[in-house]
């Protein structure tokens, strides 16, 4: 464990806490894409199946369980909470997530380290995570009114994978057997998807204004 990885994990954790805070404190999920949240839940389920058969560390297991629990908690609020669900931008959040899930699954069947069920699902989760933010970005472009918590949520989520890239470089040079091409390339694509967002996020932050994405 290095500082880049730990900071990345904490940003990931905080991004989720920011959403839960927004939902619980304001009783509103306006601006949050349920599609993206459901894709992340699918990512976590497929990747953390290894909770059942392998143990890395207490830290690792606790984080995995936390990510799973919070992902489903967010979905539960957005779908079933009487007050919160009325604030969901149902008409705007129309991204067809089949267009992401299907290609990622086919790619995982074709490009993986080992053709076993858990390995293919794990690989699928890596591919899907790379693009899972797209419905959220599309929703933010459609709804011109982006609140600060939503903007910070996406920024934390983008920052997390960017720090993982630094962590991978560090590990490559410090650990003998460390090579993970699938994760590296996916992580680079995942971070690149945020480039545009970060550009406008920085501008808004510098000028102390509310974030606005050009339509």
């Amino acid at each position: 464990m290095n500082l880049f990885r730990l900071t990345g994990d904490m940003m990931h954790l905080f991004s989720i806490l920011v959403i839960l805070l927004k939902i619980r404190a304001t009783k509103s999920c306006r601006g949050i894409s349920l599609k993206t949240q459901e894709l992340y839940a699918l990512v976590f389920v497929c990747r953390y199946l290894d909770l059942l058969y392998s143990f890395v560390s207490v830290y690792n297991s606790v984080m995995k369980v936390t990510f799973l629990a919070t992902a489903f908690s967010i979905i539960r609020y957005m779908r079933y909470d009487k007050v919160v669900r009325q604030t969901y931008d149902r008409e705007q959040d129309t991204f067809r997530y089949g267009f992401l899930v299907a290609p990622c699954f086919v790619l995982a069947l074709l490009i993986n380290h080992k053709f076993t069920l858990t390995e293919v699902l794990w690989t699928f989760s890596i591919y899907l995570e790379a693009v899972a933010i797209l419905p959220q970005l599309v929703l933010m472009q459609r709804t011109q009114n982006i609140d600060n918590l939503t903007a910070h949520y996406v920024a934390l989520l983008g920052g997390y994978r960017a720090l993982y890239i630094v962590n991978w470089v560090y590990r490559y040079f410090t650990e003998r057997h460390y090579k993970q091409w699938i994760v590296w390339i996916s992580g680079l694509i995942q971070t690149a998807i945020y480039a545009d967002f970060f550009y406008f996020y920085t501008i808004a932050w510098k000028s102390n204004k509310r974030l606005q994405l050009p339509a």
Partner: peptide, 10 residues
């Protein structure tokens, strides 16, 4: 095997 050893990220 080496891939397994390094699969410790989240």
């Amino acid at each position: 095997k080496e891939e397994e050893e390094t699969k410790d990220e989240l």
